[in-house]
Amino acid sequence: MLKLLVVEDHALVREGLVRLLAQMERGVEVQESADFESALNVLDNEGEFDLVLLDLALPGIDGFAGLDILRRRYPAMPVAVVSAFDDTPTITRVLNLGASGFIPKAFSGEALLSAVREVLAGNIFRPIGQSGATLDAETPVPPNKTGIRPDEVGLTDRQGQVLALMVRGMTNRDIADQLGLSEGTVKIHATAVFKTLGVSSRTQALVAVARYGIDFESVF
């Protein structure tokens, strides 16, 4: 019998997910928790589930930290994040932390069930078309209490270095001199940085750095 756990603090969303997941198959068991602590109690008392669906914006804990705890304590149990924070860096970080999938809350019920089935089949689910997401003043950013490394949002070491020097106000030529690269190569790295962050300009990239709390200590 399929056994699922929904961890979501908003009652209306949680109840909707539970009713929807109950349609997965005959006899499916769907349990629910309104916060991370109660979810851990359920897991400790009842053993592992076939899948945990985890919201990122939970009370009392950073959602990324919660995901990390679940992956460490229950490494064989798949966890899929279901969240409204569906920008590219968030999806990348979630998958880098070991989630088996990222399912946007904007999905229809049919699309969500399809994504859940994909994860239950042992595959990694990432929504199509999210790699081109853009960041603007209205884009929500999930709670993050500590700085994150550039690689956690999908940047390579070199891309992290280029972005760090952008933050210092250096021009492409200055960055090229600093890193021993050609100016053309710096432009290529900058374009890749913008794509990864879902932005289209230096200004937006600097906003993204501030909002995500990217820490460049590890890149030099």
Rank of each mutant, 00 (worst) to 15 (best):
F49L: 09
F49E: 08
F49Q: 08
D50Q: 14
D50Y: 06
L51K: 13
L51Q: 10
V52S: 05
V52H: 04
L53D: 00
L53G: 01
L53N: 04
L54W: 03
L56D: 10
A57R: 14
A57L: 15
A57W: 07
L58E: 07
L58I: 05
L58M: 12
P59W: 13
P59G: 12
G60K: 01
G60A: 10
I61A: 06
I61Y: 04
I61S: 06
I61G: 02
I61P: 01
D62P: 04
D62F: 07
G63N: 08
F64H: 14
F64K: 12
A65G: 04
A65W: 00
A65T: 11
G66Q: 01
G66K: 02
G66I: 01
L67Q: 02
D68Y: 06
D68G: 07
D68N: 10
I69F: 03
I69N: 02
L70P: 02
L70R: 00
R72F: 11
R72L: 10
R73G: 03
R73L: 14
Y74L: 06
P75N: 10
A76R: 05
A76D: 12
M77H: 02
P78W: 15
P78D: 13
V79N: 03
V81Q: 05
V81P: 01
V81M: 08
V82M: 09
V82Y: 08
V82G: 00
F85V: 15
D87R: 12
D87L: 15
D87K: 11
T88H: 13
T88N: 13
P89G: 09
T90H: 08
I91R: 09
T92Q: 07
T92L: 09
T92C: 05
T92Y: 00
V94P: 03
L95W: 00
N96K: 09
